[in-house]
Design a protein around this nucleic acid. Structure first.
Lengths: 174, 174
DNA sequence: TTCGCTATTTATAAGCT
DNA sequence: TAGCTTATAAATAGCGA
């Protein structure tokens, strides 16, 4: 709905993502209210934004619906919570570990176990990232200049930093 | 929506009520799925029809969302015996989130929110990583040479890749 | 960021089979 | 009761202030 068809995939632009969340959140809550009234149904909705803000709607006390859910689904919500939590901790920890390994690689650490192919991919990733960071720095540079004296010092600092980088890369590349 | 405006009040005709429930149930689930994907949000929906049939949607395990709900809302859904476990999950999850952000930055994504200082640090990190990856490639190079003909092809491939990188950086740095 | 404002896309109430 | 279809009501994406 709206000025253009929207593909259902993560919205990359963070601002748009937030705006869309706010709009659709209201839409979803409205729909939930409507169906519960129109159809005499019990409905609960719990949402967390990326930032972690919670919104809930429940046509009757949430806890009651959960008890009912537990009964109907056969899924245990709180009796065997311990095992579930433990499993979740394992999962999250593993994910964490993988992320850390990836990060280390991007920082040039622990490269030994990598295959030539992986090293190659890694180089590409670094190269792309560097190009992006660099373009961004230049942009800041330009903006700061425009803002004039108040920011002159910061400007100078960046200027010299930027020059140092240039020199380093120059030397390294020859 | 539809052939006539509908007042939001209980639909008296039982058949219509059921039909509307079925239709709107699907609509609500679709919306829930969409917002969770589009906006990277966690969403849970639990519905009970008049007859007591349950339908659920959850973008991530309901149990986790409920744990989160409890924490955010301060409402106790179940005994706090497992608070420690929940806290640990929260902690690791937050860490994961930070790692993912850092990874995105190193890949040159989502740079907008960064301060000049942060960008600077980022550049340094990228630089170190690049140097490390590069040293590693050289090492491979040497080893492969020593291993002689059997690996000659791979050697060549790496050689050309390496040379390309050199050229790219050279051009970028001037 | 947060409103308003449309142009459009979607959801869906009624009908019909 | 369960699917289709279609006319209409609603939701909302992209903009502009």
């Amino acid at each position: 709905m709206g000025r253009g068809k929207t593909e259902i995939k993560r919205i990359e632009n963070s601002t748009n993502r937030q705006v869309t969340f706010a709009k659709r959140k209201n839409g979803l809550l409205k729909k939930a209210r409507e169906i519960s009234i129109l159809c005499d149904a019990d409905v609960s909705v719990v949402m967390f934004s990326e930032a972690g803000n919670m919104t809930e709607y429940s046509s009757s006390p949430l806890i009651e619906q959960l008890a009912r859910y537990q009964k109907e689904s056969g899924k245990t919500l709180w009796d065997s919570k311990h095992e579930r939590l433990s499993a979740e901790i394992d999962r999250v920890r593993k994910e964490n570990s993988n992320l850390q390994i990836e990060l280390r690689h991007l920082k040039g650490e622990d490269l030994k176990p990598l295959s030539p192919q992986e090293l190659h991919a890694l180089e590409n990733a670094l190269e792309d990232g560097y190009a992006g960071a660099r373009a961004k720095i230049k942009e800041h540079h330009r903006k700061l200049k425009k803002n004039g004296r108040l920011l002159e010092e910061e400007n100078k600092r960046l200027s010299s930093t930027y020059q140092q980088q240039q020199n380093k890369w120059n030397m390294g590349a020859i």
